[in-house]
């Protein structure tokens, strides 16, 4: 398969075309806003396609490690079930759908672990949960990039 230019580069070039060729030719204010939103979404998508499989794989490992740690220290049946389900749902391939499904199951295990940590009022475990969530949020911010409410105000 052809891999260069990368998917990210192709999408960013479409974005450039949209900004430099299409947008100046648009006069309808509502359509202009739509094009500006498309530009933003293309930037989001470019970052996602470049990194999302690697990021999800990394986060999945960290979330499952945390869930296992909480399961050792608490007695949450929901958490144990979520961990079991995540183990059974391990990705069969690196296809995006498979990796995404596994990531979501690991996310459920993390959620159950967070709830068990709150239930146990364990500040140490909750601090670790916050660190995981902050790392996840940081990547969401990277995907979001510069973002303002286009067309509002």
């Amino acid at each position: 398969m052809i891999t260069l230019p990368t998917t990210e580069q192709i999408i960013l070039d479409c974005r450039r075309e949209l900004l430099e060729t299409v947008l100046p030719a648009v006069s309808d204010p509502a359509v202009k806003v739509t094009v500006e939103m498309m530009e933003n979404v293309l930037r989001n998508v470019a970052t996602r396609c470049a990194h999302e499989i690697a990021w999800m794989a990394e986060e999945t490992e960290a979330m499952m490690a945390y869930a296992a740690e909480v399961a050792e220290l608490t007695a949450s049946d929901a958490l144990k079930a979520a961990i079991e389900e995540a183990k059974l749902g391990r990705a069969a391939s690196l296809d995006l759908d498979d990796v995404r499904r596994e990531y979501s199951l690991a996310g459920e295990a993390l959620s159950c672990a967070i709830e068990a940590s709150f239930e146990a009022s364990d500040d140490g475990l909750l601090r670790k949960a916050v660190e995981l969530l902050q790392a996840r949020n940081a990547r969401e911010q990277q995907i979001k990039g510069d973002w303002a409410m286009i067309g509002r105000g």
Binding site: V41, N44, L133, N137, W147, I150
Partner: peptide, 19 residues
């Protein structure tokens, strides 16, 4: 609709802010 995918950025911003 692009409005929908565009607004996912508001969710990302919210996740960050609320935490």
């Amino acid at each position: 609709g692009v409005m929908l995918t565009y607004n996912l950025n508001a969710c990302a911003l919210g996740n960050f802010n609320w935490l």
